[in-house]
Design a binder for these strands. Structure first.
Lengths: 138, 138
DNA sequence: ACTTACCTTCGTGTTAGACGAAGGCTCGCG
DNA sequence: CGCGAGCCTTCGTCTAACACGAAGGTAAGT
């Protein structure tokens, strides 16, 4: 099964620009071409692209992903480093999730605050400054 | 209690560049100055900065945060819109957490994969291509 | 007097693309 | 046969949200 660049873009929810970008920057090597020089994507390419998307969305830089890809090319001697990279990514992602949850709590508080104002039709201004009521509660 | 820009930067874990940037771009108005024109931050400023950090880290653009700040300035008529903004942010953050968790599962899989290779001292290459073994398993 | 810490404006660099322009293939359609 | 569609290339500009250095200035602390 093969795919065009547009099919891949739609399947993975990314733009054709990004795909070309990843390909041009060595993160997605071995993409074949047809007689007209058009990129031809196989399922393994899709899997790799999926991994790229995963790493990007968890905050890994393009440069590091390229390095990771290079390590894979270099073979089994690099398993240690690859392992370390994935562990680091794992930790970082856990930390980011924790961070987001903390921020979510703040946002939830704001939502509740506004909801109560709207429900009670009770204007927010029994204190002089808006700043006061807008302060982030504990 | 007042703080210098450096104290605030350290307290909130952001750079003085960012603070000046936020201040210059209208997200953090009302920051006072002393006789030497140095910024003087009060606790309400810290609270606001904290909110800015929260919104930024959950993906809101500087432009939108500025808009949110403008809405607050405009007073109680804008509570509806502010409520909508926070709800949107809430949803978006929930979605991002879900996304990260999904990606984390992929990364966990990789970590386990490498860990098993390293534990068994079993090289990864009983198949010809590295690509095969590097493919993201379901 | 000197260092330090702050201020200003100006300008460049960075990342990860998004996007348009120009120029050039090739395919299928009428 | 000519057309448009879809792909390709290179080149180049644009964006967000800062990061950072330079230059030039003020003011306080030692």
């Amino acid at each position: 099964m093969t795919y065009t660049i547009h099919e891949v873009a739609e399947k993975l929810g990314i733009s054709t620009y990004s795909i070309r970008y990843y390909n041009d920057h060595g993160m997605l090597p071995f993409v074949q071409r047809d007689a007209n020089n058009n990129r031809v994507f196989h399922d393994t390419d899709l899997e790799w692209l999926n991994m790229i998307v995963c790493l990007r969305e968890t905050g890994m830089s393009v440069k590091s992903i390229k390095h990771y890809q290079d390590l894979i090319q270099e073979g089994d001697d690099t398993v240690n480093e690859r392992y370390a990279m994935m562990c680091a990514q794992q930790e970082q992602t856990l930390a980011e999730i924790a961070d987001l949850k903390k921020h979510l709590a703040t946002i939830n508080y704001k939502v509740a605050h506004y909801a109560s104002i709207l429900e009670n039709n009770e204007p927010d201004s029994f204190v002089p400054s808006n700043l006061r009521t807008e302060a982030v509660g504990k």
